[in-house]
């Protein structure tokens, strides 16, 4: 995944079955953000893999005051990359089978 300066990682082990998974997001390189970023630490949230969109969560983070509107896209992309990796790994483990 492209280094957006915003890091997103699993906040819990993924058993491959959970519909909602806990993720943790933090800014590693504030210089890559367009808007003014007030250091807020790592933000943990739950993401419903099949129902929700990364962009929707990013917008909620903007509305909650974590990021400036101009950074919604970069935050959404960072979440999207991690979610895609989670789904890819799940598909691979299904294909690998018992």
């Amino acid at each position: 995944a492209e280094d957006t300066g915003v890091r997103v990682e699993l906040a819990e082990d993924d058993d491959g079955k959970k519909e909602a998974i806990a993720l943790k997001l933090w800014v590693e390189d504030p210089k890559k953000l367009k808007g003014k970023y007030k250091e807020s630490g790592a933000i943990e949230f739950t993401f419903e893999l099949e129902k929700e969109t990364p962009e929707g969560v990013a917008q909620e983070m903007v509305e909650s005051g974590f990021f400036h509107e101009s950074d919604a896209k970069i935050v959404g992309k960072s979440i999207r990359d991690r979610v895609a990796l989670i789904k890819w790994r799940r598909e691979r483990s299904v294909l690998a089978g018992p």
Binding site: W26, D29, A42, E44, T46, E60
Partner: peptide, 27 residues
């Protein structure tokens, strides 16, 4: 370390805690 919480109007809970130590880039 204590974790702060922000609940969005749509109901999602955001829990804020210190950035994982090992992941801090040297700025």
């Amino acid at each position: 370390s204590c974790a702060a919480q922000v609940v969005h109007s749509a109901g999602r809970r955001f829990i804020v805690s210190p950035v994982p130590e090992s992941r801090l880039r040297d700025q």
